[in-house]
């Protein structure tokens, strides 16, 4: 039973991290219909930035809480800056190009960013500083649920609530939803669509950066390649839930996280990634609209 609960929590933790990344995919897709292939790299850059900042601060002897906060903020700021810049360079000029052009551009961007970090930093795995201490009050259940699991679950829940609030009730959230529904119409009623698209990239990137920080401290190491696999898995989750749908992304991520956790726990861990990829292939073949997505109809 303990093992089951352990797997349950590790699945939820995984799932909530996937969700933070998947939201970026789904929001961008909802607004401009692009699979932002470079999103996984944004997450990786978020993890790297927080790694660099946290390590520097810990070397200079800052207190742990300050390190966590500053590293988190720095990761969010820089990831957003990257997201914003990437959109301006690689996607904005292609807004009216055939559908595959921005996708190819995104793939190029992803490869570029991976190798940029590889060259500017290192190809080795780097040990991530321990940012989340083991809480005393978690002691009795520590063999089942780690402190970092708890922190991750709480943080993602808070972040999701804020995001939901932003999208439901704020001006920018409403403009985002309007743009997602009909870009031309949104433009006609005076919404600056370019700004909304930028905002979407910024928000999605910040979420990915938080995900990057959390998972890096959870797993304890990072390298330049983590974005690729995480990106594909988060994309799988977004598609599973129905790409373009925000609750769908969260639902899909949790399902993916739990299934992965149970499959590796009870079956075998060798094929962990094969499992996620196969799931992706199967969903796209049998239910491309996902669990909560709308089926797309082609107009003749």
């Amino acid at each position: 039973m303990d093992y089951f609960i352990e797997l349950l929590f590790s699945g939820l933790t995984r799932g909530s991290i996937y969700a933070l990344i998947a939201l970026g995919y789904t929001m961008v897709y909802g607004i401009i219909g692009l699979i932002n292939f470079a999103h996984g790299e944004i997450y990786m850059i978020g993890a790297f930035t927080s790694f660099i900042v946290a390590t520097v601060l810990s070397i200079y002897g800052f207190p742990l809480l300050a390190i966590v906060v500053i590293a988190g903020v720095a990761a969010a700021i820089w990831s957003s800056a990257y997201g914003y810049t990437i959109e301006k360079i690689a996607y904005k000029p292609l807004r009216h190009a055939p559908r595959l052009s921005p996708l190819i551009s995104a793939i190029g961007m992803s490869i570029f960013l991976q190798n940029y970090v590889l060259l500017a930093q290192t190809s080795d795995f780097l040990p991530f500083p321990e940012l989340i201490p083991d809480f005393d009050f978690m002691e009795p259940v520590a063999h089942i649920v780690g402190s970092s699991d708890l922190v991750i679950l709480i943080t993602t829940t808070i972040v999701m609530l804020i995001l939901t609030f932003v999208i439901k009730f704020t001006r920018i959230g409403k403009a985002m939803r309007a743009t997602a529904q009909d870009r031309t119409m949104a433009m006609l009623v005076g919404i600056n669509v370019n700004n909304i698209i930028s905002a979407t990239f910024i928000i999605g990137s910040a979420l990915a950066a938080i995900g990057g920080l959390l998972i890096a401290s959870h797993i304890g190491q990072i390298n330049f390649y983590i974005g690729f696999i995480a990106g594909i898995k988060a994309f799988t989750a977004a598609v599973l839930g129905g790409i373009g749908s925000i609750p769908g992304a969260v639902l899909g991520s949790l399902i993916l996280g739990l299934t992965e956790s149970f499959a590796t726990g009870y079956v075998s861990s060798d094929y962990e990634d094969v499992f996620a990829f196969s799931l992706l292939v199967l969903i796209l073949i049998f239910k491309p609209s996902g669990l909560l997505g709308k089926a797309e109809t082609q107009k003749v």
Partner: peptide
């Protein structure tokens, strides 16, 4: 046979997934 009816960008991702599956299977 199953994937070619997918829309262009989905096809791209499915083929990517397939490529990775083949590699991971060969590895494991």
């Amino acid at each position: 046979f199953p994937v070619l009816r997918l829309r262009g960008d989905y096809l791209a991702i499915v083929t990517l997934g397939f490529g990775e599956i083949i590699r991971l299977v060969l590895e494991n």
